[in-house]
Nucleic acid binder design. Structure first.
Length: 603
RNA sequence: GGGGCUGUAGCUCAGUUGGAUAGAGCGACGGUUUCCUAAACCGUAGGUCGUGGGUUCGAGUCCCGCCAGCCCCGCCA
């Protein structure tokens, strides 16, 4: 009810302005008094909206809050435009003004949404001030080349995709960037090690498989940490690579190609689209980052390393903490790359991405890093005045023991294994149900439902939690058929599909819409909240708000379904209820699509 | 030592610029099916919102102290 609430807000504000100007002369300070504080009602019995300003105004106006509320209501109840939309407001408690939207307004909203593919969510183009924000970079997933994707990439991938979908739906041009780790010290290590133990892997595509590569990586890392000679060789190798040595580059590109195919496999299963643009992309821009910082006078050479000292962050010794942009050995590091990336992304097309909002979806452990890098970028003047740079952090994935999720043998969990297990468990559940209910389904049905339910459960479990807190991973909970889970939501949709299969009309004679049951009104009001929720998610970048809404909606629908017959109802109730069913289905489907979750007709 | 995040029911978690009696789900206990998929619905029990102060008409929410857990802290990303 975005539009309705905006209109109500305007009318209330008008009444408020009139009232305040009668009490006092409008000064600078009293402008601040003019916010009606219109918010959705906290409880259904309070109506649709509530106005809280009477309580805040009591002190500055030196009047009791109820008196203020009464005066506002007196004015608003003669406002014809307001009365078109709402009943005469009621005053409750210490001075709340409760507002109820008229039934005919709600019904006309319903009719409008049934014809509107966007279900009432405005595209940004309709609001000119948003236009400049239309290019958005979402940096997410970002696995490392020569490693397999593991559970650590799960949240970034799923949350990032969801945020990108919401932003795209709102009409932004979104660049979904996969900032893969395809550069830096780790390649020096790996290539040096491979040269010694498996030189073929660097010359011939797929000479070793990715699993072996991961083992080699682990070995290389261990040698790097313990063997000084190896460390030196690795550093040399990085320098060779960064200076464009042909043999090193060839080896590097073979490794990248091999990992890339593996990543793509996972992204396809999850239905996630990403543009790969690894760290190496910014290689040509690294030197100019250092030069730029030098010119702006921010650069300090400390112990041989070129760095920028941060404001507001102090280390152990009481000295400011540095961001190192060029190491003692002349090499660049991740801070340099991130700075180059920020600069490139904000630079106008065609020299850069022309973005106005850049979003990083990474774990909360990188907060310090981004704090530093963002500050340096700001002080260097690389962020346009209307540009927004946001770190969207998320917590750790933990096992049910509350510790970082590991396999039984203590290894990190591979993403493909995790997805396979979710699907496997979903299939077991489904087969048990089919047996218990004596249903017969072919193998295509079983495999489609299992894989949809399994993947949906993994995604939904992650998205439905406030991303900032650590997330306790549990197959049992996410696949559970009850509660705030993907199967529960999918089931609500399946019930609606059932109604249509059993003879629900799809072309609705909307002129006859009429409601008689409280459950119908509750459902309609819930449906009309959708546009608010999407706009909120876009602003706050919290997908769990959308999940909570879809869960609420499913609960409300299930109550309705349970207590109110649809197909057997007399007209005009039948067509009215079918209209509610269709809008519920449309809303759930669109909501799930924005979460990156496909839906089912039957399950 | 410094910084970040977290602390809400037995468990997992919600809680929109501070608003009315703090909410779900799971688990527990009890009930509902000649009817559109019961993978559902209804009910009961369960709370000093870590803790102590402060701000104010009003604090789970804002400020300060303390306690506990996790993470980060110069050349890895």
């Amino acid at each position: 009810m975005l539009i309705i609430s905006q209109l109500i807000g305007i009318r209330i504000r008008r009444a408020l302005e009139e009232f305040v100007s009668e009490c006092t002369t409008l000064s600078e300070s009293s402008i601040a008094l003019l916010d009606p504080q219109l918010v959705p009602a906290t409880k259904p019995e309070f109506g649709d909206f509530q106005v809280n300003c009477a309580l805040t105004l009591a002190k500055p106006l030196r009047k009791p809050p109820r008196e203020i509320a009464l005066a506002i209501v007196e004015k608003i109840k003669h406002d014809e435009q307001f009365l078109e939309l709402c009943e005469v407001p009621l005053i409750a408690g210490p001075g709340f003004i409760n507002i109820t939207v008229k039934p005919k307004c709600l019904i006309s909203e319903l009719e409008h949404r049934l014809r509107d593919k966007r279900l009432g969510v405005p595209p940004i183009d309709s609001d000119r001030s948003d236009k400049q924000l239309s290019r958005v970079v979402v940096d997410f997933s970002s696995p490392n080349i020569a490693k397999e994707m593991h559970v650590g990439h799960l949240r970034s991938t799923i949350i990032g995709d969801c945020l990108a979908r919401v932003l795209e739906f709102r009409g932004h041009t979104v660049l979904r960037l996969n900032h893969v780790g395809d550069w830096g010290t780790q390649f020096g290590m790996l290539i040096t090690h491979l040269k010694q133990v498996a030189p073929l892997a660097l010359k011939k595509p797929d000479a070793v498989d990715l699993g072996d590569l991961v083992d080699f990586y682990r070995e290389a890392k261990q040698r790097f940490d313990t063997d000084i000679t190896f460390q030196a060789l690795s550093r040399e190798e990085v320098v060779k690579l960064q200076s464009g040595d042909e043999i090193s580059l060839k080896a590097w590109s073979l490794l990248c190609e091999q990992s890339r195919r593996e990543f793509q496999n996972i992204y396809q299963r999850l239905d996630i689209r990403l543009t790969e643009r690894g760290e190496s992309f910014y290689n040509p821009y690294l030197q100019s980052v250092v030069d730029g910082l030098e010119r702006s006078g921010l650069l300090v050479v400390d112990d041989g390393a070129k760095c920028v000292f941060l404001e507001g962050l102090v280390g152990k010794d009481g000295k400011a903490l540095p961001v190192i942009v060029q190491k003692r050995d002349g090499g660049f590091n991740y801070a340099t790359t991130d700075l180059a990336a920020i600069r490139y992304r904000f630079t106008a097309i065609p020299q850069g991405d022309g973005a106005c909002r850049v979003i990083y979806v990474t774990d909360v452990g990188q907060s310090n890093h981004f704090f530093g890098v963002f500050q340096v970028a700001k002080r260097a003047g690389w962020i346009p005045s209307d540009g927004s740079l946001e770190h969207v952090p998320f917590g750790l994935v933990q096992g049910e023991d509350g510790k970082k999720l590991k396999t039984r043998s203590g290894d990190t969990v591979r993403l493909r294994d995790l997805l396979d297990e979710a699907i496997g468990r979903a299939e077991k559940d489904l087969r048990r149900r089919l047996r218990e209910e004596g249903r017969q389904e072919d193998s295509a049905f079983i495999s489609n439902v299992s894989s949809t339910v399994g993947l949906a459960s993994v995604k939904y479990a992650d998205l439905s939690q406030n991303r900032i807190t650590n997330y306790q991973f549990s197959f049992d909970r996410m696949l559970s058929l009850q509660g705030n889970t993907a199967p529960y939501l999918l089931y609500a949709l399946v019930r609606i599909s059932g109604i249509y299969r059993k003879g629900g009309d799809t072309d609705l004679a909307l002129s006859k819409v009429e409601f008689s049951e409280p459950q119908e009104w509750v459902l309609l009001r819930e449906l009309l909240k959708f546009d608010d929720v999407i706009v909120l998610v876009e602003k706050e970048l919290l997908p769990n708000r959308l999940c909570n809404y879809l869960f609420e909606l499913s609960q409300v629908f299930n109550r309705f379904y349970d207590q109110v017959p649809v197909l057997k109802a007399e007209e005009p109730h039948r067509v009215s209820r079918l209209a509610l069913c269709r809008l519920t289905a449309d809303t759930l489907k669109l909501g799930m699509t924005l979460l990156g979750i496909p839906t089912l007709e039957r399950m």
